[in-house]
Write a protein that binds this DNA or RNA. Structure first.
Lengths: 150, 150
DNA sequence: TTATTTGCAAATCTTTTGCATGAGG
DNA sequence: CCTCATGCAAAAGATTTGCAAATAA
């Protein structure tokens, strides 16, 4: 009774075939530190000499979202759809406005806040998404080359 | 020295011409309780017998975003770009997953959290966006017609 | 008058779909 | 085998762009 569940097992359990394309997309997302667009996934796979069609990527991504293996997000700046693995952990995005890199944060202080909203607004809360915008350390340091902040 | 600043004044100040299309779009967003898509704006204006081109709407919206009069958002579900007036107040979205209606919440408990992130992650925080997903009161009541939750 | 804005049509980009072929269980 | 997944090409939908005409200051 291992606690480690492989994607293969999850796919099986959901009645989805264990195809090479599904696996390579899942593996790619697994190793990525960032959520990726369909196009980025396409380019990364082509780079790995994997022959795949963009429409297949879209179809695989949609299937995986529907089955809860991955999660859809999007960026405010350019309204692109991003995909990331559903780690089943509570995570939020820290977005650098300079380099556009996304860092995950797992701390979340909102349970209490959600309760309040439930009472005040009569909403049943199912979840939330928090994106924090700023400038990351390395971009800030680059910007300050030659200039003094003080 | 009135404290009420009109859009006309803001446009002037930014060196933007005070055109009928810019005004009708701003007026529409002013009266809307929800963020709107470019297309929804187009249809609403056509409905008001205003003759305008969709590309003009996109150009006006982009100009207004660049000049900070309106704000761009987007929905996770269908990845549409939404526009809303920049009220310069701190607001968050409460999104009903059934009727897709968006309600604004103005309470925000995150100043403290942001400080923490700044220290921990070395980020300069510029702002954040919070979207809370759930089911609104009226949708929940509709769902429960005939069925018992208990 | 002169720079800015707008309309129109066409281009671009992302995502979806139909259909015939191929692969997994 | 038989269903589900994939490739390919074409469609669909959202947004942008080039250029000429209209308009605000």
């Amino acid at each position: 009774m291992s606690e480690i569940i492989t994607y293969k097992e999850v796919l099986n359990h959901k009645g989805l075939k264990n195809t090479r394309h599904r696996n390579s997309i899942l593996e790619l997302l697994e190793t990525s530190t960032q959520p990726l667009t369909a196009d980025q996934i396409y380019l990364a796979l082509v780079n790995q000499k994997i022959s795949i069609n963009l429409s297949t990527i879209y179809r695989v991504l949609n299937t995986l979202v529907e089955n809860g293996l991955i999660i859809k997000t999007n960026t405010v700046s350019d309204n692109k759809t991003l995909f990331e693995l559903n780690s089943f952990e509570h995570k939020h995005h820290l977005v650098c406005m300079e380099c556009k890199k996304i860092t995950m944060v797992d701390e979340c202080p909102f349970e209490e806040y959600e309760k309040k909203l439930k009472e005040k607004m009569g909403y049943t809360i199912l979840g939330h998404k928090l994106e924090i915008y700023g400038v990351c350390k390395s971009c800030r340091e680059k910007e300050n080359n030659g200039k003094s902040i003080v």
